[in-house]
Design a binder for these strands. Structure first.
Lengths: 404, 404
DNA sequence: TGAGTTTGTGCCGCAACTAAACAAACTGCG
DNA sequence: CGCAGTTTGTTTAGTTGCGGCACAAACTCA
């Protein structure tokens, strides 16, 4: 009728301007100075200066105009760049078998505040998520910080594009629960500003490790981690999470790593899931497994404190061999340039790094692929930080548009 | 000294301007008209018009200004866009067990000319590649077309960034031969214009199928194909080939698909490689395998012509089950939204599509992942077309810069 | 024939950048 | 101390790719 919507196009489809890339560089710590920013961005000093000034005006970064101290090389010292300490934050939430956790996370993966305790997980997703969001909202009120959005990490595959949690094995939720929708609704209701996102915890941990942890600088990062039960995987390609066409990629738990191993609920035998998780370790080491929600801790403690015990050591070596076989299979298919391990797998790596590396090298096809660096994860709450990354992403893509 | 190289930056790091994306849309047949180009590109009609005019001026596309015939809907009919029939071409080359092949390939994957016969492959890579390039150069002289570059497909993994052919099982080349360098040298020596590229044949076939064949429109395309011996895989993510951090991704041949299967040279048992390739089919069907360089044809003919024979049928079903198991494993890890099969796998799919789909659905974790469409490849010479895609890529990325 | 709809084009202007010249801040050497 | 040499920050003046119109063109439908 009015013929107005004819030529109006958003044009924001591809991130224009160097603002986003510049913020990402500072965010991931790859641009400590304006000079580095200039070269990393491939723009002139004039542009880099303008971009840095604009990001500072938005309250996202700090530019230390003070005469730099540690110079080192010749020439005029460059002004240092850092994420703002008082800028906006993302609300990060995580649900797991032990309970839940809420935190405020600033740029650079800096955890600003964490919600105190954790209570037991209840059956109803809406109730749990309501409590997490309420805890986060309280943190926001306490600190008075601006919120750019919210992210949630759940211990289950999240189907795209619906955002339903498939097979949440380790928490008592119904399969197919629309967690993304529920979470978004809770966030809206609570009056928290910004969009809400939901993702799988291992995926988000991988994202966080890639940006702020052991995966920094990797081009093709593979992460594998255990929770209390089962094994999860994630892949970060060129800085972006690869979660497949419907969010179900990297379901690595059912790779066969033992031809005549334990039966698995998937119908197969000897799956990575049932051969290398904490429960597998405890039973292989002939220990009585405790309650489900503490298997990871129990297994990790056992591995660290009783590695002298022959049964423990043998169990560890058996699991390392199985894990190595699984990793080698993944290396053959994905050819990553770095592998980061979490959960019990991280502890197994720490226990005998050489053995694991040798198995992977031996069982992967090409010698060079076998020499992939395998590292333990380094971030304390990587899933939580990863959840915050989801909320930060729109800001990283286009700071001006995201902060209106 | 002169202080000239200080602020000079290429700036071409990210493709600017809509020229490249526009050409890619026409190239892949996704922009049949200027109106579609406008919406797909997300720009105004003014911009789309200017872009189309510029691409036409470069001789890359044709704009039919004639009053369009088949309109269909209301309004002024849009001018039709098509790749130019007389524009430049890419030189495509392929080496395989049977010999080699050279062709000229225009935009849109259109094969303009093919070198006549094929001679037997000799031991020395330099000699073979010299002959292929010479054949291609002859085609260029005959047609008088401009050449944007050259691409080569080899039946072996190509290590990045060196460009060496690892384990060229099926041709009598030394392992680690620097094929990329040799090919580039031949191209340079012959006076062919433009850069030279080399890639794995299955990877390139996948790229071609994604742009012009059965994989069109897929976001996450998985291709699996057999040659005469062994199995290759490839993945195209968001239109770009994913070949891993060192070119060795998708080595799918050693997925275990039969716990107590045939021994494989990798040290394992029951690998996809030895359980589902043409030789495996012939022996399972109790047929005498012919010479190595005709196994694929022999197996395919047998499957098509003697499917009534119980031994043939049983062998086919056994291979389909094994292949399905392998594909299911890949689906769990990669979660593609389409699978395209080539070589004998394509014939197996044609023989009993329902059986293969059922096995994949049954053995992959999530029902929805199991319902991935599985299609036969549709391009006649997909590796060859894919090799040309390599050479076209710089033009697609930035037509102005690539054509000077 | 005229209203409605969709597409092509010319013109203006903006936003994001480059290029070039200059100023500033540091090191090192005589 | 002073001065060359080096690197970084800033200012100013273009350049360019593209959006936003306004209008013309080509077709359908009533």
């Amino acid at each position: 009728m009015n013929g107005k919507a004819t030529t109006t196009r958003t044009k924001l489809e591809r991130g224009r301007s160097a603002l986003g890339p510049a913020l990402e560089l500072v965010h991931t710590g790859r641009a400590p100075t304006r000079a580095v920013l200039t070269s990393e961005l491939g723009v002139t000093r004039a542009t880099a200066g303008a971009v840095a000034a604009e990001l500072e005006a938005l309250g996202l970064i700090r530019v230390d105009s003070s005469p730099g101290s540690a110079a080192g090389s010749q020439g005029r010292p460059s002004h240092r760049l850092a994420v703002s300490g008082t800028g906006p934050v993302a609300l990060a939430a995580q649900v797991h078998a032990d309970g839940f956790r809420a935190a405020l996370v600033g740029l650079g993966g800096r955890i600003v505040a964490t919600a105190p305790g954790c209570v037991a997980v209840m059956a109803d997703p809406a109730q749990v998520l309501g409590e997490v969001v309420a805890a986060g909202a309280q943190l926001l009120r306490d600190t008075g910080l601006r919120c750019v959005g919210a992210g949630l990490a759940v211990p289950s595959a999240v189907a795209e594009p619906e955002g339903t949690a498939l097979n949440p094995l380790h928490i008592a939720w119904p399969a197919g629960a629309p967690v993304r929708e529920i979470f978004a609704e809770c966030v809206r209701e609570t009056g928290i500003t910004g969009p809400a996102f939901t993702g799988n915890d291992v995926n988000l941990a991988a994202l966080a490790e890639h940006r702020h942890g052991a995966g920094r600088g990797a081009q093709h990062l593979l992460c594998v981690a255990t929770g209390h039960r089962g094994v999860g995987g994630a892949l970060v390609l060129d800085g972006r999470l690869h979660s497949g066409s419907s969010g179900l990629a990297l379901e690595v738990g059912h790779l066969t790593v033992n031809a005549d191993g334990r039966p698995c609920h998937c119908g197969g035998r000897g799956c990575l899931d049932v051969e290398t998780d904490p429960l597998a370790f405890l039973t292989t080491a002939r220990r009585e497994p405790g309650p489900e929600e503490s298997l990871l801790k129990q297994a990790g403690d056992l591995l660290r404190t009783e590695y002298d015990d022959a049964a423990v050591r043998n169990a560890a070596e058996e699991l390392i061999d199985r894990l190595g076989l699984g990793l080698a299979g993944l290396v053959n298919i994905l050819n990553p340039d770095r592998i980061v391990l979490g959960g019990l797998h991280r502890d197994l790596l720490d226990a005998d790094p050489e053995r694991l590396r040798a198995v992977v090298a031996d069982r992967s096809l090409w010698g060079r692929s076998g020499s992939v660096p395998i590292l333990p994860c380094t971030l304390a709450h990587n899933s939580l930080v990863g959840a915050a990354e989801l909320a930060w992403q729109p800001v990283l893509d286009d700071p001006l548009a995201a902060l209106t």
